[in-house]
Amino acid sequence: MPGPPRRPFRRQGPPPPPKDKGWDPVAAWYDKLVGEDGSDYHKHVILPATLKLLDPKEGESVIDVCCGQGVLVRPLLETGIARFTGVDASPKLIEAAKSRHGNNPRVKLLTADACKPGAWADGSHDAATCLMAVHDVPDPVAMFRNVAQSLKPGGRAVMVFMHPCFRIPRQSHWGWDAEHKIQYRRLDRYGSQLDIPITTHPGRKSGELTMFHHRPLSDLLSALGQGGLGVVACEELYSHRRSQPGPRSRGEHRAAKEFPMFIALKALRLG
């Protein structure tokens, strides 16, 4: 089954040099790919699951950590929240978000590294979100700590990211068993922490590198606790797409229902 429009897994190369501007080098490409309202997967899988788990209430304040170009702004404002704050390390993605929502008095957009202490983590928010970014940050404990510190006591956070048990760049693959007529998921590695460089702009001879940080699920759950967040709910999210009719369609449809693409976690601020 096809994957989500995140990072094309093209070639392996040396890790990119450390950057404090997040996805700035690929911001224009990523903004065009995802757009204002999100990709096909955002619209049909990621955003509905996020809103369901977050259950935003009228008058609440919500912060979106690693907000990118602001795909959550409109859906959250439509629920009646009083204040939306978006934080992202990429100035260019923040500018893209501001070009769409910057004139709304209920919206505040900030350029800041989610893994570093910042004034935005001020304990004033009722809820927090982090979509498709947990695997993009090098220090999940630091990010989770900042998410927790951005919340009021008992505040809730929802994080959605690529499922670490089934979606690992270059280490997980689809296969076809002709004898049993089933599509299966093959994993070459899982238990090791992996920093995997990914080349964007597929089709070009050269492209910018981003880094995918694979962490086993147990490490991520422990990092949440170390950061001051306790998981209270979990949903595994499956692809809504189905293949075209053909000799493999039945097996592919079954696989789409059995192997989740994303995982969504709801956590509460501890203490």
Rank of each mutant, 00 (worst) to 15 (best):
P16H: 04
P91E: 10
P75H: 11
R167Q: 15
H101A: 12
L229H: 00
H213A: 05
V232T: 14
R254Q: 13
G246C: 06
R74Q: 14
K181A: 15
R215A: 05
L47C: 05
N104F: 04
L217G: 00
G13T: 07
A267P: 04
F212N: 05
R167S: 14
E252V: 08
A49Q: 00
V65T: 04
F259L: 14
D122V: 09
Y190D: 03
K57W: 09
D40Q: 12
P75L: 06
R254P: 03
A28T: 10
L237V: 00
R106G: 08
H163L: 06
E235F: 04
R100P: 03
E252R: 10
A133D: 05
D24V: 01
P247A: 13
E78G: 08
T111Y: 02
F259S: 08
R269T: 06
E236C: 07
H180G: 11
L33M: 13
G225D: 14
D31P: 06
Q244Y: 08
G13D: 12
G102K: 10
L224K: 03
P153K: 10
K52E: 15
D40I: 09
V34I: 12
N103Y: 07
K92Q: 14
E258I: 10
P15Q: 14
A121W: 10
V45A: 14
L187T: 04
Y238E: 06
V160R: 00
L47H: 00
S222I: 11
L51K: 00
A255F: 03
L47V: 12
G86H: 02
P56S: 03
F9C: 13
Y41W: 11
K21L: 12
K181E: 15
I46Q: 02
V62Q: 03
T85D: 09
Y30H: 11
L265Y: 00
L187Q: 06
V134T: 11
T50I: 07
E252C: 05
A49I: 07
L77M: 01
V73T: 01
W29P: 01
P197V: 01
R106E: 13
D113T: 06
R100Y: 07
D88T: 10
K181C: 13
P245W: 08
G68C: 01
S150A: 15
A127I: 02
G13K: 01
P245K: 11
G154E: 03
E60K: 01
P105Q: 03
A114M: 12
S192P: 07
Q193A: 13
K181Q: 15
L229E: 04
K21D: 15
A133K: 03
E208Y: 05
P14I: 02
M143K: 01
Y190F: 07
V141C: 09
L51S: 08
L54F: 07
D177E: 15
P216Y: 01
I94M: 04
L224H: 01
L110W: 09
V160A: 00
G70V: 08
P245V: 12
K116H: 09
R185T: 08
G80N: 08
G191H: 12
P75G: 10
W120L: 06
S39C: 05
G175A: 14
Q12V: 10
P202F: 06
P15F: 09
F212S: 13
F9G: 11
E258Y: 02
W174E: 02
I63T: 10
A178S: 14
S124W: 01
H101D: 12
V65M: 02
S218M: 11
E95R: 12
H180K: 14
F262G: 00
G227H: 07
A233S: 13
A157Q: 02
